[in-house]
């Protein structure tokens, strides 16, 4: 039986690829590509949007507003990432199982903590935002936790995986030198994953800026909120001002993370 299944297994991947491809093509057909899909006044709007792109509104009030909203967006993202890192650190380390000596405990703990991480990241930050706004109202805490919890789930999962993928020789050597499991974490696992974890966190930080901006659509202030207001007033020149600020933040973070990464190369 096993011999019969073996060739199937090697073809599994191509079968899966074909299936996914078929699903994709089928989904194209299930969209009704009729004219009503396209906005009737689309052309004039497009022209207006491009005009805004060339002449963004740089009046002092709008620029001041953009700076203030950028600040709010960045603050939400930074605080949210701090919460995320705390969650990731605690649950990621526990979910990697390296702190538990008994095999049974390790398996159970990995199941529980990785399960928690999977659950909190399965829910999108916007959904978390709506939930928190419903519970605690339009407070900054809603934004911070809405960001921090799902990002903590993502970062925690990555941290746990990285810890599990660490080469085993250095850890064995530490054990042989008399190190406890916690000491192995300090002198082995954490330094071994540090560089990768920092660059992944920086990448996620960039994403969190975007999320933070988007999240303010639910009314939590920040760049997204301003974009929404200007959009509903059809002030595309203002929209572009805010968008340029958003792009600038992301570019700055990218530059920062590049310089960090350079210093951290192994």
């Amino acid at each position: 039986m096993k011999e019969l299944l073996a060739p199937l297994k090697t073809h599994n991947r191509s079968v899966l690829t074909l299936l996914l491809l078929a699903a994709f093509i089928w989904s194209l057909f299930s969209v009704t590509w009729s004219r009503d899909l396209v906005h009737a006044g689309g052309w004039t709007t497009t022209v207006q949007i491009f005009e805004g792109l060339i002449k963004p509104d740089l009046s002092p009030e709008i620029v001041a507003l953009a700076i203030e909203s950028s600040w709010v967006t960045v603050v939400y993202a930074v605080t949210g990432m701090t919460v995320a890192l705390i969650i990731a650190f605690i649950f990621g380390i526990l979910g990697s199982g390296v702190l538990f000596s008994s095999h049974a405990v390790r398996v159970i703990a990995m199941g529980i903590f990785r399960g928690i991480l999977a659950t909190i990241r399965a829910i999108h930050e916007l959904v978390w935002a709506l939930l928190f706004v419903a519970v605690i109202g339009l407070s900054p805490y809603a934004a911070v936790f809405a960001l921090g919890i799902p990002y903590g789930g993502i970062l925690g999962r990555i941290l746990a995986d990285m810890i599990n993928d660490v080469p085993k020789e250095p850890i064995q050597a530490l054990r042989a030198a008399g190190a406890s499991r916690l000491q192995c974490l300090l002198y082995g696992y954490l330094p071994l994953v540090r560089a990768n974890m920092i660059s992944y966190t920086m990448y996620r930080f960039e994403c969190s800026i975007r999320s933070s901006a988007i999240m303010s659509f639910v009314g939590l202030g920040g760049l997204g909120y301003q974009i929404q207001l200007s959009l509903s007033d059809l002030n595309y020149d203002e929209v572009w001002t805010f968008l340029f600020f958003l792009i600038a933040i992301v570019v700055l973070i990218d530059a920062w993370s590049n310089s960090l990464r350079k210093r951290l190369v192994l």
Binding site: E169, P170, A173, L174, A176, A177, Y187, G188, L192
Partner: peptide, 12 residues
Amino acid sequence: GVIRQQFDLVPA
């Protein structure tokens, strides 16, 4: 105490 090939140090 044990010493193996140089892979048992923590490079970082």
